[in-house]
Design a protein around this nucleic acid. Structure first.
Lengths: 173, 173
DNA sequence: CATGTTTTCTTGAATTGTTCAAGTTTTCCC
DNA sequence: GGGAAAACTTGAACAATTCAAGAAAACATG
């Protein structure tokens, strides 16, 4: 289960988790290491998933603990928080590559795609409307239907429903 | 207060609200007309705002009623629902123009910008990762800081906080 | 214009992801 | 080894959104 993370793009960060925590000015704790590990293994994991999997590694982590850790790591720039549309918060490692996300409207599964324009897309603030605005990030979400949901006629969950119950989420890399 | 909407881009839709409802296969009701009117006047309005302003027009609309109307109109393609980051749901008229949004990390204000690439950006599904995925929409959010927040040193509400209390939101076009 | 069917709106309660608060335990620097 | 600061635990609170069931409209038809 705990296998080496699939190396997709330029993702193999050679720095050990502990080092990453320290250089981010954070203390090294078991929950944090575990959460980092879990997120590395399950990209786009939601809090519930992180909680479960973390508990499998480090016994007894509280719900609050996971929330705190995720917030701390996100604030420190080690994680990136996603929340496509109306769904729950999801987390992935912040690797500095500028990738975007394709999200299935039906099953909410997420896959990464490298930035289409090479550089951060459209960090072009020259629009008169946005005068004075300092943009530091462009977030791109491609909405569509994944192959599975198209085949199995997953209908049109027009994604106006907020939360989907399934703890047993389909997780893709 | 209730002044004519500033006409930015190609937004002046000449079709009467009633017609738009009917041609979308929806019944024409006072709450729906009122909600359409409110969203036209307050782009990016959240549910609370829509509720308040709608009540000023059509007396006695229930919270649930507004939610239902918003959902129905969104599903019918008359409205577009936004939820940048971790914030509450917001709505704007679906005009078919392909514009995107610049969002202030601090005050959450939203402004529209025309699509940077002319055509729907990057509807390019040729990535091997997204094989089989049928993408129908690309949502782009530019994150940054608005002029106001930069000046008044609104600090760094790293936008990890979910809800902001203010019913009195700063609304921009 | 009456009538029936369908859709829509209302009231009130429930759900749920997330956060707040206070106290206890760690981590880590000296 | 101690002591201050940061992190975790427990338990409760919150707030946006949704569910459920009934009442009230809107529209097609006779």
């Amino acid at each position: 289960m705990v296998e080496t993370r699939e190396v997709g793009r330029a993702e193999r960060v050679p720095v050990a988790p502990e080092q990453r925590l320290r250089s981010a000015g954070l203390r090294v704790t078991a929950p944090r290491l575990a959460v980092l590990d879990v997120v590395a293994e399950y990209p786009h994991a939601d809090v519930a998933t992180v909680l479960e999997r973390t508990r499998e590694r480090a016994h007894d982590v509280s719900v609050q603990g996971v929330y705190d850790v995720l917030t701390a790591l996100t604030r420190a720039g080690l994680l990136r928080r996603l929340q496509p549309g109306h769904s729950v918060a999801r987390y992935e490692l912040e690797t500095g590559d500028n990738h975007h996300h394709v999200v299935c409207r039906s099953c909410q599964s997420i896959i990464d795609v490298p930035c289409t324009t090479g550089q951060p897309p459209c960090l072009d603030t020259s629009h008169p409307e946005a005068a004075g605005f300092v943009v530091d990030e462009a977030e791109v979400i491609f909405w569509g239907m994944c192959p599975d949901c198209r085949e199995h006629g997953a209908g049109d969950h027009t994604s106006l429903q907020t939360t989907q119950k399934s703890t047993e989420k389909k997780e893709q890399v």
